[in-house]
Design a protein around this nucleic acid. Structure first.
Length: 845
RNA sequence: GCCGGGAUGGCGGAACGGUAGACGCAGUAGACUCAAAAUCUACCGGGGAGACCCGUGCGGGUUCGAAUCCCGCUCCCGGCACCA
């Protein structure tokens, strides 16, 4: 067989290599260079001849090194993308870097403390270079001609542009918001950075601080975000987002206050309104001061101050006993005019609903605990079915279920819930409240507006200015980008260098031309990742953030893969952003990603999360040096279901390495003496093995079941090795099987498949071939072995013609010696034949 | 507490309601070797001499037939958590 030269490998090396068998270290870099040279991964986005498939995998933060988790996320995704391409699609599979973020800035701050000079920009760019080099060794089909890094002004200027458009539409706004403030590092911390109420790095007690902050109005889209129709997303992710949005239906009810005015409360149980025996305000509620009487003032103020000192985390600590103080003020229960006391307690959150609740201790666990603690009245107004009448004085827990309304004026005897379409007490009370102007139907969400301000340096500057004459003014579009200055000195305190950067802050008001100050807050980095997939399609576009034609042709993204840890934040923001820019008229799609698949987490050998501290980190570079990229890829796919992740088993990869060596030997080594002749039966067995593998691997890759795809390839290798013989190796069926094996291996072990493909003398890249079709004829067998059960237990096996009819099968089954024993003396009640599988004879004695 | 997901050999895991344990790891025996490694071959859930019996977290049920479907539990993992 002719063996055309494999590119860039001198013949001498080649023959030496051949003697050594499978040497991935020799073949992998060669093919990586060849693919790069031939431009195999550069996609023609304008190609209209094939089905387009945008296959996206979440871009990484440039942490400095690719770890095995990146390989676990990206190489199976690559296999799925390669599979799509072989199935005929024009696949766009880009990669870039989510390059803004805290770690790089923290490194700069820490360096500043040591008196050293590290700049996040320099550090990040360096890390991107390192990681790009490491990425090349994966053998993935990333189209690097369209990469991007979000920290570059060419990218983030469009963050600013989107921000301005959102601001124009009223979707970006500034309001006072409570944040976690670290007094030592002098910055706001994300919730994840607050551990047990203390700043992660400084160890300082985090304070709740009210600060003016920029927000996006994601809550405007709450209802639309609850709609997942048309999306092929894991149930788990949809549920998590649904819970996060937390839609609650109920009523808003106004309570008049003795001190004047009213306080609005939200409740999901307006049917319990007659049982509201007190009101509770959050400590931050604006009316606290005005309802408090003078004799209670010092106590209330002390309580409010104490609450302000505590972090939200501490306030919500599990099992914490309820605290609160009486304000001295009273409100009027609007349904019957009863006067009820007003309390302040930190179990009421200012950020939810209206920051005030009507407490119904008889029917709400939290209110019940509070009432008992402080000796407040418990008044049952819903009587559950089938139990003794509730008594507020002796109840030991709240009754939160349904029942019959009582002590509720006109509603006595009304059932609370809706039974079989009948309107229940909840709906009836709401209508009654609306008729009287006391309250109204209201939907509340747990979701809060997206706080995008960060008092940090390494992010996108928010393009707003503050002018003494004009107030808050947006930067002009033509002045973008507002460039993040790089001539900055990092403070050991951690304070953003922008706050002391005079040249950055001093600006001209775009409105009046007078002096103005620039906003020094930067944007949350989730902003960067909320639209990056549009930018990949035209990363160099300078007249707008996106290329509308390409976006129309290529989005929504057909397949998106990434870690489950982004189930809420990134994926929810991305959906919101897509809807927002749709409403800005830029795109027409409603959703960013049609099909979503999540991979699990790869753990250390000890089953724990990999960390330097534990010393259980597996370095992919070491593995590649030792076993080759293909072995690492195949093992990561083989380890188990992709969405489950699992512990790294250093012995496990050895099994996959052995498999790859066997594949090499199977195809490259001459057949030994002996082995089966190329009989009709052997040929049929071989073709059946190969085409079964085609069917199974196709199905598995379609369904992201990489583990069973690899197992199926191992099965094929085993079958071929058993059948391999001198006479069969001459047969066309052997060639066919080798060809199929290589095509099926191509997405999983791209280098090995390519090398052997060329060694077998096939033209062109294996990766540009069509995915094989199953020959149904080859799957057929002449005979079938059936299991014969008697009363559901296996008692024998029979071999019959594959197309034998039921009567023939049953006769053969009953004649089987062991089966006959069990039939003796009994009465045959039923005969079940599952074609090609089994026979079950039901006998009673 | 609420919402998801899970529990199968010594281990990772397979299994359209139809032969439980594919594939691999580890292990046992053998071949090759002076020996070892590598490689190859066979075995590899438990009990039993055997026919067989038992076996997919636990208890019920549906079915000719259940790891798979239904009901009720236990435990583990993940997310959310005083959201009125």
């Amino acid at each position: 067989m002719t063996r055309p030269d494999v590119p860039t490998a001198p013949d001498a090396d080649r023959s030496a290599e051949r003697d050594r068998g499978y040497v991935p270290q020799a073949i992998e870099p060669r093919w990586q260079q060849e693919w790069e040279r031939s431009g195999q991964h550069r996609v023609d986005l304008e190609d209209g001849s094939r089905e387009k498939h945008y296959f996206l995998t979440m871009f990484p933060y440039p942490s400095g090194n690719l770890h095995v988790g990146h390989w676990y996320a990206e190489t199976p995704a690559d296999a799925a993308a390669r599979f799509r391409r072989m199935r005929g699609a024009n696949v766009f599979f880009p990669m870039g870097f989510d390059a803004f973020g805290l770690p790089a800035e923290n490194a700069a701050v820490q360096a500043a403390r040591r008196g050293e000079d590290v700049h996040p920009a320099r550090l990040t760019r360096e890390r991107i270079r390192t990681m790009t080099g490491q990425f090349a060794r994966m053998g993935a089909m990333f189209d690097w001609s369209r990469t991007l890094a979000t920290c570059e002004p060419e990218y983030y200027r469009w963050n600013q542009w989107f921000f301005l458009k959102a601001y124009e539409k009223g979707l970006a706004y500034r309001k006072e918001s409570y944040v976690n403030w670290d007094p030592v590092d002098r910055t706001v911390l994300a919730n994840e950075q607050v551990i047990d109420g203390r700043g992660e790095r400084s160890g300082a007690l985090v304070e709740r601080r009210l600060m003016p902050q920029w927000h996006f109005k994601i809550t405007d889209y709450a209802d639309e975000l609850l709609d997942f129709s048309g999306l092929d997303w894991p149930e788990r992710v949809r549920t998590m987002q649904t819970n996060w949005i937390g839609r609650s239906e109920g009523a808003e009810v106004a309570f008049e206050i003795d001190a004047g005015g009213e306080i609005r409360t939200f409740t999901t149980r307006p049917d319990t309104l007659w049982g509201a025996t007190f009101l509770v305000l959050a400590p931050e509620h604006p009316r606290v001061a005005t309802v408090t009487t003078d004799d209670r003032r010092s106590e209330v103020e002390a309580y409010v101050a104490e609450a302000a000192r505590m972090s939200e985390l501490d306030r919500q600590a599990e099992g914490r006993e309820k605290t609160g103080v009486f304000t001295g003020g009273y409100a009027t229960r609007p349904v019957d005019g009863a006067r009820i006391p007003i309390w302040v307690a930190d179990y009421v959150l200012v950020t939810y609903g209206s920051g005030a609740v009507m407490a119904v201790p008889a029917h709400d666990e939290r209110d019940f605990a509070f009432a008992r603690r402080f000796g407040l009245e418990v008044a049952p107004v819903v009587q559950p079915h089938g139990v003794a009448p509730l008594d507020g004085a002796t109840m030991t827990e709240a009754w939160t279920g349904g029942g019959t309304m009582m002590a509720s004026g006109p509603f006595d005897g009304t059932p609370t819930g809706t039974e079989l379409g009948e309107e229940g007490g909840i709906a009836k009370v709401i209508r009654w409240l609306e008729e009287r102007g006391i309250g109204e139907r209201k939907v509340t969400y747990r979701l809060r507006d997206w706080l995008i301000s960060r008092q940090r340096y390494w992010g996108t500057p928010i393009p707003m200015l503050y002018c003494d004459a004009c107030g808050t003014v947006p930067e002009r579009e033509e002045n973008l980008p507002v460039v993040l200055p790089e001539d900055v000195a990092f403070m050991p305190t951690g304070e953003s260098p922008l706050k002391s950067h005079e040249a950055f802050q001093a600006a001209t008001c775009p409105s009046c031309g007078g002096p103005a100050r620039r906003e020094t807050d930067t944007m949350d980095t989730f902003m960067d990742s909320s639209w990056y997939w549009f930018r990949y399609l035209a990363p160099d576009a300078i007249d707008g953030p996106i290329d509308r034609n390409r976006v129309a042709a290529w989005t929504p993204v057909h397949t998106y893969t990434g870690g489950i840890e982004h189930a809420i934040l990134h994926l929810l923001y991305a959906r919101f952003f897509t809807k927002m820019i749709r409403d800005l008229g830029l795109i027409s799609a409603d959703e960013p990603f049609l099909r979503l698949r999540n991979q699990g987490m790869i753990l250390g050998e000890d089953g724990e999360k990999m960390s330097k501290r534990r010393g259980n980190v597996v370095d992919p570079d070491d593995l590649v040096a030792r076993y080759g990229a293909d072995a690492v890829r195949a093992y990561l796919m083989f380890i188990g279901p992709w969405d489950q992740g699992g512990p790294w088993n250093p012995k496990g990869i050895e099994g996959v390495v052995r498999f790859l060596h066997r594949v090499w030997a199977l195809i490259e080594d001459p057949a030994r003496e002996g082995g089966p002749d190329a009989t009709e039966e052997a040929v049929a067995d071989l073709r059946r093995a190969a085409h079964t593998a085609v069917a199974e691997v196709t199905d598995d890759l379609e369904g992201f079941r990489f583990n069973t795809a690899v197992a199926e390839l191992m099965t094929l290798q085993n079958a071929m090795a058993k059948l391999k013989s001198r006479s069969l190796a001459e047969h066309a069926a052997w060639d066919e099987s080798v060809r199929l094996l290589l095509l099926l291996l191509a997405p999983i072990t791209p280098h090995l498949a390519e090398e052997l493909w060329h060694r077998r003398g096939y033209d062109g890249s294996v990766h540009l071939q069509s995915w094989p079709e199953v020959d149904e004829e080859a799957l057929r067998t002449a005979t079938a072995e059936l299991v014969v059960q008697v009363n559901g237990k296996v008692r024998g096996r029979i071999t019959v013609d594959a197309d034998a009819d039921d009567a023939t099968v049953l006769t053969a089954a009953k004649e089987e010696a062991n089966v006959a024993r069990y039939l003796e003396g009994g009465t045959l009640r039923r005969e079940i034949v599952v074609p090609g599988k089994l026979v079950n004879l039901v006998v009673s004695s």
